[in-house]
Amino acid sequence: MLAAHNLGKRFGPRWIFRDLAFEASMGQVIGVFGPNGCGKSTLLRLLAGLAPASEGKITRDSSGDLRQSVGFAALDLALYPDLTADEHLVLAAKLRGHPSKAEIWLNRIALPPDQPTREFSSGMRARLRLALAVQHSPTLLLLDEPSASLDEAGRNLVRELIAEQCGRGIVVLATNDPIEKEWAHHAINLG
């Protein structure tokens, strides 16, 4: 279960959003829609625990470590430029205490194992961010514009990952893409 109660975020005197309330249960895909600057990415950062809410409360089912229960992939989530995709996946698995399935994931996301990410295209980086977000089987998956800069195969991968996630938890999907909007079971309209 994921719930937000009277959630609000402001930067200085300006409120990005206020009095936001929603609930989601296992198997649901929640779409977060709205124009640029309405706070979609900010809401996902709040749900990931990367930023504090200015008011209100977020309730997550998982009482344990957020690193284990949350997967987060966003366009502005930077990767280590000197590390390879394989090293990213192995590092993430070690830090979260899961067996590394780097080889399987590298095949699935079709990335070379030994190329530093500084040489990656934006689409390749997006694929790696997706793998990092889901390789530990989180119960809450937060995706910010997941298909942006992805080709058709990449879009299919996102769709597959969302379908798999629905079997074990909740997906929150921030997007303005008309195709991605159709994947959502419920919508939160900001702005």
Partner: peptide, 16 residues
């Protein structure tokens, strides 16, 4: 500078 602090926070315990 690389904007990787978010990734580090998502992956690692702060103490570690």
């Amino acid at each position: 500078e690389q904007r990787t602090l978010d990734l580090l926070r998502l992956l690692a315990r702060p103490e570690a």
